[in-house]
């Protein structure tokens, strides 16, 4: 089992697999973005209460979902690093962090843009926004630790421990913030409150979420693949793959 896992995740194998997914998810993301944007901007009705600003949701909600999804991906990849010492997983975990931070930031920024017309303030201590802010801190901590440790393998493992500690804490943090929020906030419109959705709104949201997911897959694999190439530059398979250009010189 272990040998099989290592073979599957060997740098060379990973390179090929990643290339496959990058191509297909790339096209998928393109199609999904095109149709998703068309739906969310032109083919879905304005909300009866929120008006046109509901359209911000089609960015905000997928970004928030992605921010969580990426953290989970990062923690799972970290587990593979710590338990099975798989190099490709380390590259994936490392590539996840800035992307996750970006989506978290996007969720915060769009939440704030949405909040201005709805609440009349750029920032309100809404439960979801507060949790996203803490999630951003967790991502920043992961990245800071990763960059503070010189040795790349040690950095990947140390940051991996942090990611796993984080994933145990995230539900606790979310629950505590949610609980704190219900005590302190009156009945306002919250981001978490689901508007009554008609089918077109629902389709827009689903298309955009899928587009974001596909984009994430493409971006994380590209980053991870580049890092693997750089780290493995002296190995046989990289030389063979890039060998053609050397010989022509």
């Amino acid at each position: 089992m272990l040998a099989w896992l290592h073979r599957l995740a060997s740098p060379k194998r990973f390179h090929g697999l990643a290339g496959f997914f990058i191509t297909w998810c790339g096209w998928g993301a393109l199609v999904l973005f095109a149709s998703g944007l068309y739906y969310s901007l032109f083919n879905s009705p304005p909300d009866y209460q929120q008006g046109e600003s509901i359209r911000i949701m089609y960015i905000h909600v997928p970004a928030a979902w992605n921010s969580m999804f990426i953290y989970i991906t990062m923690a799972i990849a970290s587990l593979f690093v710590l338990v099975w010492r798989i190099k490709a997983a380390a590259a994936v975990a490392r590539a996840c962090a800035p992307l996750g931070a970006m989506f978290t930031f996007l969720a915060l920024a769009t939440g704030s843009l949405w909040g201005k017309p709805m609440w009349g303030a750029w920032w309100v201590w809404d439960a979801r926004l507060t949790s996203e802010l803490i999630l951003l801190f967790l991502y920043l901590g992961f990245m800071a630790l990763q960059s503070a440790i010189e040795d790349k393998d040690a950095a990947a493992r140390a940051a991996g421990v942090l990611a796993i500690v984080g994933i145990i804490n995230i539900p606790i943090i979310y629950y505590s913030v949610e609980w704190w929020n219900t005590l302190h906030q009156g009945a306002t419109i919250t981001l978490s409150e689901k508007p009554k959705m008609n089918t077109d709104m629902f389709i827009s949201l689903i298309l955009m979420s899928l587009a974001f997911k596909f984009y994430f897959v493409v971006a994380v694999l590209r980053k991870a693949r580049n890092e693997m190439l750089e780290r493995e530059q002296n190995s046989q398979w990289v030389k063979e793959m890039l060998g053609g250009s050397d010989e022509r010189k």
């Binding site: 803490i134 801190f137 901590g141 804490n169 606790i172 505590s176």
Partner: peptide, 14 residues
């Protein structure tokens, strides 16, 4: 502090 303080939040809240 960057690593630890976010994890302290639930304790602070409750």
């Amino acid at each position: 502090s960057l690593l630890v303080l976010p994890l302290y939040i639930p304790v602070l809240i409750f």
